[in-house]
Amino acid sequence: MGIVKPAEAEDTEKLVRSSSSIGTILNLLLQDRRTLAGVLSWVGIGVLVSFVVIAIFAYPLAPYDPQRIFLTPPNQPPSLQHLMGTDDLGRDLFSRMLYGARTSLEIMTIGVFLALAIGFPIGLVSGYLGGKLDRVLVLVMDSVYAFPGLLLAAMVALFLGKGVFNVGIAITVIYVPTYFRVTRNQTLSVREETYVDAARALGAGNWTVIWSYIAYNVLISIPVVFSLSAADAILTAAGLSFLGLGLERPTPDWGLDLSDAQKFLTSGVWWSSFFPGVMIIILTVGLSFLGEGLNDIVNPLLRKERA
């Protein structure tokens, strides 16, 4: 109950300054450029932005049509004509990798955004209102969460059939519980804030409190989950394609290409497996870096805010 010394007060305020939670994170990212967390985050952001650019500009960037079959013998090693070589059907791997980025990001975006759009509001309401509804939702979400992700996605994909959108849905099912849990936990702690009491004292009803006083302050913990689940989603999508449950041939897709290339690996054709694998790894690792970096940046912030 001691009186806050001005110096301390200022310190706390520097961290929670600025308009919004997203704005706060951006500010911190700029401040923390030199720390490990900052470097990780910026590397992650760099990777993500590059892949988004590649996906958007696949058409002008790619030297050839990804479906075009060259009549030279297939499985050409990397050369100046074909930077990453050709695959077993004689298609240019480099072009397929660029277009594959588009496929991956499409799936990731559908899956992760839908999961957020479903898990976030349910987590908010469940966490704030509590009671029986909350207990039932936690039970349901926990059971889905306990299921192995790839197996669950495989089952949903099998049921829905192939295609970018269906794989997206399969991934949504895996991640709804993740967003639900994170949102709910954060809601439980924001709910105890004095400003929530203050809002109730003003006469705000449940919906107003949730919407105007809680939602935005819970959102701050989302970017971390977002990056990590996006990384996971890329792997899962690749896994589904590899298992033959994801996309239809001849869609340019890293997982599909990897699956087709593996039988030639023993005869020394390394490039057609190597490059899809590398693409998957770079994007996944980049997103994980971003997630871990943000986690280190956002968590102390959450602690400070609560102090």
Partner: peptide
């Protein structure tokens, strides 16, 4: 009947601009 708490910083939603925060009771009612 209104209540004012000890910690003014904690009593304000960090994500709501001051003008909107002060006017919010009018929206609520």
């Amino acid at each position: 009947m209104q209540i004012i708490f000890q910690d003014p910083h904690a009593s304000l939603n960090p994500a709501m601009a001051i003008g909107r925060a002060i006017g919010h009771p009018l929206w609520i009612h």
